[in-house]
Write a protein that binds this DNA or RNA. Structure first.
Lengths: 136, 136
DNA sequence: CTCAGTGCAAACTATTTGCAGATTT
DNA sequence: AAATCTGCAAATAGTTTGCACTGAG
């Protein structure tokens, strides 16, 4: 339950934090920019006037707490998704903007090898495929 | 020769463009941010007062012409490198900030397969390993 | 001579921060 | 009540743009 997640992060349970976590958890869409969240929240009936700055602050706190992951896809705005614990990478559909997730053992294994070959220990990686549908 | 490259891009041969291309071509370092180039140019004896805006403009034109590649590594500033024609990916040394280039057939092949599996044609990709030296 | 290119300052976009008042515990 | 949190506006960082002037061809 999301209340627990917030509490475990050492954060107080507030309306903005609940709302944001809720949207992230219960939407078909999984990736949101701060501004998208802002617009969704602004259009809710129970509009509580949550500011954009707060959304950024909450997302940054959630990121630090390991609740969400921030991605810097191209196109200016960062997008955030819930950290499901299952690592995956992304295909960005350049036609529709849709984001597809995938997991690939070959890539995961290979990147470790590459890092090691060069005398490094992998900390993080960024693997994004920008692509267009085969039948245009 | 770089004059040719500039001309072929349909651009006039100007001091800022020559200087920038020169630095990119003849430095040990291969990756530069706009600001780094700005500082290098500002410190040259023959300081011709090249503005930061010009550097951004020139780099953007060079990118459009296929002369340079722009990378958005994490840490705010974009970095630019000459497009040698040989595709490669990068390891970013989080300790020193150094950038290591590598080529890997397994990764290249695999990403094509992944895109195809999902019904996509690969347009571009971003593969960056953030890592630290093994012996800290 | 003409049109592209440049420097500068101002504009912009995405994000962060300071502060005084509102909320959570 | 104490401490955290929030909204707002102002600040920042990186990059882009408008404009009058300069310079390449």
């Amino acid at each position: 339950m999301n209340k627990e997640d917030i509490k475990e992060a050492g954060l107080k349970i507030t309306k903005p934090r609940m709302r944001i976590l809720n949207i992230l958890e219960s939407s078909a869409q999984k990736h949101f920019s701060a501004e998208e969240l802002f617009h969704i929240l602004s259009n809710e009936e129970d509009n509580s006037g949550i500011g954009l700055a707060t959304i950024y602050r909450v997302l940054t706190q959630f990121e630090a707490a390991g609740l969400v992951i921030r991605h810097n896809f191209e196109g200016g705005q960062a997008v955030f998704e819930l950290d499901s614990g299952e690592h995956h990478d992304h295909i960005v559909d350049m036609k529709s903007g849709k984001i597809i997730e995938f997991q690939d053992e070959i890539i995961e294994k290979r990147q470790e090898e590459i890092a090691k070959q060069h005398g490094y220990r992998l900390i993080d990686h960024c693997f994004i495929l920008y692509a267009e549908p085969l039948e245009d």
